[in-house]
Design a protein around this nucleic acid. Structure first.
Lengths: 110, 110
DNA sequence: TTTATATATTGCAATATTACGATTAATAAT
DNA sequence: ATTATTAATCGTAATATTGCAATATATAAA
């Protein structure tokens, strides 16, 4: 094993898990935070910002992109990255629904 | 390697990464969704709900608990679990701040 | 064309994660 | 006391992830 089972779960659950998984790493969180502040950046900016090798950061950027969290546009010899606001709003919404569902309900056991 | 570097990132970033990482698995997402709907449950309920062995689910519950996402209370021979609303609100808040920061800003490149 | 610059990809070695059967622990029921 | 019942833990095999040096690729500058 070591394989994550996805059979038996709804597509929505599997998709959400992919997004959260991509966010679940300090380097990738740091990249997102950086993009929130800077709105956009090239890979090299992040290499200068984080204590990781260029190859490692390139890999993390690819994972964020695959998960749909960031978008990248080629600009000459660099690549400009920015956040996918739609996706962020989507998970923000999801969390909102969770809270709404939970507030106004007394938990009996915890 | 295979080790996640946490040195060089802020505590807040590392903490958020821990929470998102815990959410980044279909089984754990399914557990959270179930708890949103049911408000509370015992381990056995989830074992009946998900296509995974009891040992596996117990493990996932522990990870969610370690990350602070759920709380558990012993009730006789079972354990009653429920969501930690405070933590959920906290990350909801964080995502809200991200969106606020990003809206009203035109991205130049993507 | 050659050289510099920026990013992606490849190929590892080390470590982490996942899933599950088997076992244990701890309470409840008989 | 014995036996269910419930959940946690252990051990382990298979697979995934992480980080980086080295290399490749692709555009820009000289």
């Amino acid at each position: 094993m070591g394989v994550t089972k996805t059979f038996g779960f709804s597509d929505e659950i599997n998709d959400m898990a992919i997004v959260f998984k991509a966010l679940g790493h300090p380097a990738r969180m740091a990249i997102v935070e950086y993009l929130v502040k800077q709105k956009e950046c090239v890979c090299g900016d992040i290499v200068n910002e984080l204590p990781l090798a260029q190859a490692t950061i390139s890999q993390h950027l690819r994972e964020l992109k695959t998960a749909g969290i960031i978008k990248g546009t080629i600009e000459g010899t660099s690549v400009c990255y920015c956040l996918n606001l739609d996706l962020l709003k989507h998970i923000e919404n999801k969390l909102n629904l969770w809270s709404l569902d939970l507030t106004n309900e007394e938990n009996k056991c915890c």
